[in-house]
Design a protein around this nucleic acid. Structure first.
Lengths: 142, 142
DNA sequence: CCAACAATTACGCTGCGTCAGTGTAC
DNA sequence: GGTACACTGACGCAGCGTAATTGTTG
């Protein structure tokens, strides 16, 4: 945090400093998560170092499972001058509920797969000829 | 299973009989999961009732988590005259491993979300001013 | 002749990766 | 004037949904 905060950054420098690919940064800009302050005469994007703060935030909340749309909403609140913490908390709580649901679904699926695989060898001896099923073991109850 | 097995079906009839949308059926055909036996003079697809067997199979294994590409491989084996059961068993075993990994990842994420949300109110009183973080509660350790 | 059905084409979603072709900075 | 850097634009992935427009069946 030296006094060099006025330096403008090219997209490649932002990419190296943040660890986020150039293409991704341009995509975020397109979605409205970032704005480049200006362009050079030759249309090269120029960013303030501030963009690194935003990218760090984006990485963090994205790792927690929020979509880019949700992140954009948070950043808009931030740009209006408020801390988006309340909004984020709400979204994280929603996210927790969804995670639980997905885990639940996956557990059910896991159970079903387990059941099918356990009975596989036993079943395969009995159900050999059934023209209307492609894999009779799988489709014994349909 | 009456003797009407020679009747050819239009795509809408297939859709109604299988419960799968027309658009999806066309998409499956495009991917090579299905083939229409023939066309009418006016280019309408004609399917044998056989297609219902295939669609039932596709629905079943897709519900177990296999991708359409994997399903296509199984159906190809079937079309070569073999039962694809061994292949399917292998894919389901792989799928089980992946499910376990995904559950594991989601559990980790769940833990992290829980931790963050638990400490939220306590933290929010202390960390109010930090210019380089968008939400200081979230990013206290970065 | 009309209603119901079907055809093809293209664009949308999510989060980017991967060219391709062209211009810019130093 | 070369080389690294950046630009825009298009297409690809998965699995379809949703029009839009035009033709077919009975």
């Amino acid at each position: 945090m030296l006094a060099q905060d006025r330096t403008l950054l090219l997209i490649g420098q932002v990419a190296r400093a943040s660890g986020i690919p150039i293409k991704t940064i341009r995509y975020y800009e397109e979605l409205g998560l970032l704005k480049s302050l200006d362009r050079t005469e030759g249309k090269f994007r120029l960013f303030t170092p501030n963009v690194l703060t935003r990218l760090a935030f984006i990485k963090r909340v994205q790792a927690l499972g929020l979509s880019l749309q949700e992140i954009r909403e948070c950043l808009q609140i931030y740009d209006w001058g408020d801390r988006p913490c309340d909004e984020i908390k709400q979204k994280l709580e929603d996210q927790l509920v969804e995670i639980d649901q997905r885990i639940e679904q996956l557990m059910v699926l896991r159970q079903e797969l387990n059941g099918i695989l356990k009975g596989w060898n036993t079943q395969s001896k009995q159900l050999d000829r059934q023209a209307d099923k492609i894999c009779p073991i799988l489709q014994r109850d349909t």
